[in-house]
Structure formats: C-alpha cells, structure tokens
C-alpha cells in the first residue's frame, strides 16, 4: 500500500478558487505540505488566510459548482481530488473526520447527541441500532462526559459548551479516522476548557495514531500540541517547520507580527500589545509582489523594491523541514530576531 517513505498525507500545490461576481477569489494559492500518522500539523493565520478552506478541501466539502480546485491531495497513495463524490463520501467520517469550531451550531439541535453519534457510526460501520448506541455511550465516556449512559439521550442544548465540543470530538472519532481535521476546536471555549480539550485530542491521538491538522489563529494552542506549524497568509504558506524551532526563531515578518500580538501573562500590564498593522489583502486582487509587503515593517531593507514587484517563493529554511517565503536575507533576519525581537519576547517572559 503505502511506500515506507511516502508521507501519510501529501498535499501538493493545492489551489482553491471561488469565482464570484467581483472576480475570482484565490482562497488557497499553491499550498503544499506533508503529514505523518501520529503527528499534528498546526495551520495558523488570520481570518481569511485560507486555513479553513484548506481543511474543508481535504474532505472535499466545497460545492464543486462554485469552486475550482486544482493540485493533488494524496492520502495513503490515493489522490482525493480525483475521487468522485460517492467515493469521497465513503471516506468522510470514516478515514477523514472533521471537528468544527462552534459545537452549538455544528450539532443538530433536533436530535439527541447519541442519535447523531450513532447515525454517523452506523453509516460506515453498519450494525444494529443498539450496537451503535453502545458505541456512542463508550465514546462519550472516552471523551470524558460524566454519566455517558444518561447523557447520550440529551440534546445539544442540554450540554455545556465544553461538553458539546467533547461530544463533537466523540462524533468525529466514532469510526477511528486516520486523519482528523480540527478547525478552531477550542476557539468557542474558555481557556480552562480549551486546555482540557487539547489534552483530550493529544491523548486520543496517541491512542489511535491519527494524523491531526489543527487549524487555528492561536499560536498558543499550536505551541501546546502541534509537531509542525504552517503559517498561512493570503492563501499561501509563508513559513513552516518544526514547531519548537520555528516559534523560538521565527524568520518571517508576518510570524513576528503574530508572536508580538500575543498577550503574555507575565508581561507588564503597561507593555502594549503590538497588533499586525493593516488588514489582509483582498484575495481577488493580490499584489504582484509579496502579499504581506503592504503591512511589512521590514520591506525597506530589501533592495530594488523586490518585495513590491516579485513574489517570494517558498524555499527551505534553516529549520528542520522548514520553508520560508521572504526576500529578507538570512543575515538581516537573524539580526532582527536577535537584536529586536528576542529581547522583547524574552523580556516579557522573564
């Protein structure tokens, strides 16, 4: 089946476009990444950077009449983009599962939690209703719902936010998927619950050896659970690599901006947060150069106005498995990190 060196998931040059009346929206623009089983890839970026669109295309959930998708999504030797709707539908929920951001709206208000878990389970695994119900009770217990045999008959509105997200996870795990796409799984939850959910995901991952793609705008979440991180900007990967290496020495001005905008518990209250100035570009009329250039504080350091005229390509960076799309030369980047950024971040850490 899978060649030993072949990655479990191999996304190559993924492009997702939505034709609209105003023009074509380039939601994802040439994205490539790989992921092994048992590993977690964090995809991070602002709203509209293409994170969620990427997650949805892994499951083929875009309306084919309104979407143009190109590239390749290899999952264990099969290119998902060549599959027909019915073949893909067989894989959804079974091999690939998705956890959504807001468990209140992502669960149907009309059916009990148990009914919803059981329905998806039976769809792929078959078996009797009683067996599916037992499976639902087991799963709810597994994700830490107290009294699962009683709570299985509750409706989503009778659950708290954290419990709903646990139920959502139970639902996604019902058929032991090998790839789990978690789209902002903790954004709607408060911080203590967030930590519990992330722990739960990590536990279940080590148990089932699934690959997880964690889509979030929260670098804090990424640093807690991801093995690799991919920073998206305007539908492209601008920086990626091993999570520790990348977060300790980020190389791309956009990643710097994201890190500088995180509030830190131990920083002085009078140290202002630094937001990334400006707003993401329109995905209809992308600038011809670096998409981040209009918001970049460092593009003046690059000679000949290259940032404005030439799109930087993703090339290997010093980080293991890393990539970087930036015109700044290595020396300048290291100087900025060492002299300006690390003291700022460390200062607030110490």
């Amino acid at each position: 089946m899978t060649a030993p060196n072949m990655p479990f998931l191999d996304v190559r040059d993924l492009e997702v476009r939505f034709p609209t009346d105003d023009g074509v929206v380039h939601a994802v623009d040439g994205l490539s990444f790989t992921l092994q089983r048992g590993k977690t890839l964090g995809i991070v970026g602002e709203s509209g950077s293409g994170k969620t669109v990427t997650g949805l295309s892994l499951l083929g959930l875009h309306d084919p009449r309104r979407t143009q998708i190109s590239g390749q999504i290899w999952l264990e030797g099969t290119d998902l983009l060549t599959l027909g709707e019915s073949e893909l539908n067989e894989m959804r929920g079974e091999k690939i599962a998705m956890i959504f951001q807001d468990p209140l709206t992502a669960l149907s208000p009309f059916y009990t939690i148990g009914n919803q878990i059981a329905e998806g389970y039976r769809r792929h695994a078959g078996g009797s209703k009683a067996a599916a119900r037992k499976r639902a009770v087991d799963l709810l217990g597994r994700v830490g719902i107290p009294q699962p045999d009683r709570r299985v008959d509750n409706y989503p509105h009778e659950f708290s936010g954290g419990m709903r997200q646990r139920a959502m996870i139970a639902m996604a795990l019902s058929n032991n998927p090998s790839l789990l796409v978690a789209d902002e799984p903790t954004t709607a939850l408060d911080v203590t619950v967030q930590a519990q959910i992330l722990d739960l995901l990590a536990d279940l991952q080590s148990e089932f050896n699934s690959a997880i793609i964690l889509v979030t705008h929260d670098l804090g979440v990424i640093s807690q659970v991801a093995d690799d991180v991919l920073v998206m900007y305007a539908g492209r990967c601008v920086e990626k690599g091993d999570v520790r290496a990348l977060l300790s020495r980020p190389q791309m001005p956009y990643t710097w901006g994201l890190l500088s905008s995180i509030p830190r518990l131990n920083s002085d209250v009078d140290v202002p947060l630094v937001p990334v100035r400006g707003a993401p570009p329109s995905l209809i009329d992308l600038p011809s150069g670096c998409p981040f250039q209009p918001r970049c504080d460092h593009s003046w350091r690059v000679a000949a106005d290259r940032c404005r005229t030439e799109r930087p390509v993703l090339r290997p960076s010093g980080v293991p498995g890393g990539g970087l799309a930036c015109h700044l030369d290595e020396e300048t980047r290291n100087r900025i990190v060492d002299e300006d950024l690390l003291p700022l971040w460390e200062g607030s850490r110490s």
């Binding site: 067989e90 894989m91 599962a97 992502a106 669960l107 149907s108 998806g120 959502m168």
Partner: peptide, 26 residues
C-alpha cells in the same frame, strides 16, 4: 447552509439523510 448540515456532510452521511433528516427538519 446550517453548520450541522455541513457536519453531516463531513461525516459522510447519505444525501437522503442530509436533506430529509437534517436539513428538512430545520
């Protein structure tokens, strides 16, 4: 366009179930 209909699709439910059981009821 409800989120739970998208959840149903993401779980590979049949078109019949998505249209009648989930969307239809709403």
């Amino acid at each position: 366009q409800e989120d739970f209909v998208r959840t149903g699709r993401a779980r590979g439910l049949s078109a019949r179930s998505i249209y009648l059981k989930h969307a239809g009821r709403a």
